[in-house]
Measured scan of single mutants.
Amino acid sequence: MASDGVVVEIGKVTGSVGTTVEIPVYFRGVPSKGIANCDFVFRYDPNVLEIIGIDPGDIIVDPNPTKSFDTAIYPDRKIIVFLFAEDSGTGAYAITKDGVFAKIRATVKSSAPGYITFDEVGGFADNDLVEQKVSFIDGGVNVGNATPTKGATPTNTATPTK
């Protein structure tokens, strides 16, 4: 695992066909100046998982989280898009600690492993708008004895992609 920078880890949970599971997305290594904004994309298989919603985690402190935390689910493109932009203008609602960034709610549709993997990152910046190093650890849903650990090695991303 990367020793510096922010680590975004997609949790690994267990479920069975027809059940709804909650998959946490963790941030670790949050910089001392916090995270003022970030955007990134995960990939998944809508034939295996139906993403039914995404909720902000406990490290989102904006009293009205829909102003700073936004997501979009595109089953036709097989992606989930995340956007966080601190909304106070003063840094008061920045992410300042490690913990759960988001909770992905999904219904298991198939007995195949439900991988959720890193696809791309736009950027991560602290309260001074300084770009942060970030790496990703894939996860998803274990169905029966299947284990979604494909790509469990962190993917280092030093520069934003478009």
Rank of each mutant, 00 (worst) to 15 (best):
S3L: 05
G5Q: 15
V6S: 03
V7T: 08
V8D: 15
V8L: 03
E9G: 11
I10N: 12
I10M: 07
K12E: 06
K12L: 05
V13T: 06
V13P: 09
T14H: 10
G15A: 08
S16T: 07
E22L: 05
E22Q: 11
I23W: 15
V25P: 03
V25A: 06
F27A: 06
R28S: 12
R28E: 03
G29V: 14
V30A: 10
V30D: 03
V30W: 02
P31L: 03
K33H: 15
G34S: 05
G34T: 06
G34V: 08
I35F: 03
A36G: 13
C38W: 01
V41K: 00
F42M: 03
P46M: 08
P46H: 09
P46G: 03
N47V: 09
N47F: 11
L49P: 13
E50P: 07
E50V: 08
E50A: 05
E50S: 10
I51E: 02
I52D: 05
I52K: 04
I52W: 03
I52V: 06
G53M: 14
G53T: 10
I54K: 00
I54C: 03
I54W: 01
I54R: 12
D55W: 14
D55G: 14
D55Q: 06
D55V: 07
P56I: 05
D58Y: 06
D58P: 05
D58Q: 08
I59P: 07
I59D: 10
V61R: 05
V61I: 08
D62Q: 15
P63N: 15
N64C: 10
N64T: 11
N64A: 08
P65D: 15
T66Q: 09
K67M: 14
F69R: 06
F69K: 01
F69H: 06
D70L: 15
D70Q: 15
D70C: 14
D70G: 15
T71H: 04
I73G: 01
Y74T: 00
Y74D: 00
Y74S: 00
D76N: 02
D76L: 02
K78V: 03
I79P: 00
I80Q: 09
F82C: 02
L83N: 01
F84T: 02
A85R: 01
E86K: 01
E86P: 01
E86D: 01
S88L: 10
G89K: 00
G89S: 02
G91M: 15
G91V: 03
A92C: 06
A94L: 04
T96W: 10
T96Y: 10
T96G: 11
D98S: 09
D98Q: 15
D98L: 11
D98W: 04
G99S: 14
G99F: 05
F101W: 15
A102C: 13
I104G: 06
R105P: 11
R105G: 11
R105I: 03
A106R: 00
A106K: 05
T107I: 06
T107S: 10
V108K: 07
K109D: 15
P113T: 03
P113C: 09
Y115D: 07
D119S: 08
E120D: 05
G123H: 00
G123S: 01
G123I: 00
F124N: 00
A125I: 00
A125T: 02
D126K: 01
N127D: 06
L129A: 02
L129H: 02
L129T: 02
L129E: 01
V130E: 07
K133P: 05
K133H: 12
K133R: 11
K133L: 06
K133T: 08
K133W: 13
S135K: 07
S135F: 06
F136D: 10
F136T: 03
I137L: 13
I137T: 11
I137E: 11
D138K: 13
D138S: 11
G139T: 02
G139L: 02
G139C: 09
G139K: 05
G140K: 14
G140F: 10
N142M: 09
N142R: 14
N142W: 08
V143E: 10
V143A: 12
V143S: 11
G144L: 12
G144C: 15
G144N: 13
G144T: 13
N145H: 13
T147P: 12
P148G: 03
T149A: 11
G151F: 13
G151M: 10
G151N: 14
A152H: 11
T153F: 15
T155C: 11
T155K: 13
T155D: 06
N156P: 13
N156R: 09
T157R: 11
T159K: 13
T159N: 14
P160Y: 09
T161W: 14
